[in-house]
Amino acid sequence: MSEIVLETRNLVRRFGAFLATNDVSLKVERGARHALIGPNGAGKTTLINLLTGVLPPSEGQVFLEGEDITSMASFRRVKRGLTRTFQINQLFNEFTPLETVALAIAEREGVGHNLWRSIAGYGKVIDEAAALLARFGLSSVMGERTVILPYGKQRLLEIALAFASKPRVLLLDEPAAGVPEDERHEVLQIVADLPADVTVLLIEHDMDLVFSFANRISVLVAGAVFVEGTVAEISTDPRVKAVYLGENA
């Protein structure tokens, strides 16, 4: 069995009386393409928030590469190789895409605290930022303010920004949401092209996309892991169908 990089043990999160995450114990192997699916309100985003430290859990623990990171600050988790994208774009509106990714690269390289040298002087950071933006088709708008970019471009920047941190574990919260249908596969293609040892945990509603991308799937219902298995197992599981049909009915 291969190495577990991300693990939760009996994770619980309550909002008042509402149980958003109910005793979730999840194991994600290194290099996995792991999808997290489930009906609306199943607690998928809450789980991502718990994994990345946006929210503290009510109970339970989170481990990254064997280390207990349950109470670690978000930025430290990112430094240890865990990062994410957001379902709703979380960008720096007044920044240009170039400034945005340059910031992330500078922080990754550990020069973010330098307050004396101009950021223009970090040639390697700028070059890498430019190359990354080119890869996401954002070169032409790299000098515009993010807030005036069309939604599709902002969405790409959202994902490019997570890439800039060079994560070893990447959590994608509905990366294709709002991206036109014919371009979704290309977005995920970039993700699929990540080195094999980068672990990806994906939340997605589009089942075709999930089945073509993932090699392992967890189904979340009402905050708890309902069933977990390979693509073949999940796609033929009658119970999963029932959950989704039940939602649609």
């Binding site: 990345t52 430290g53 946006v54 600050a73 978000s74 930025f75 430290r76 990112v78 430094k79 990062t83 994410r84 957001f86 979380q90 960008l91 720096f92 509106n93 007044e94 920044f95 400034e99 340059a102 910031l103 992330a104 500078a106 922080e107 990754r108 020069v111 973010g112 605290h113 330098n114 307050l115 004396w116 040298r117 101009s118 950021i119 223009a120 970090y122 920004l161 997570a162 800039a164 941190s165």
Partner: peptide, 25 residues
């Protein structure tokens, strides 16, 4: 105009995201 200055503006602009690109706010 240093990386530090840029990270300050990032904290102001969006504290949650700035943490997610490893800025120690």
């Amino acid at each position: 105009f240093s990386p530090f200055g840029l990270s300050l503006k990032a904290i102001k602009g969006n504290p949650m995201r700035s943490a997610m690109v490893a800025v120690p706010g």
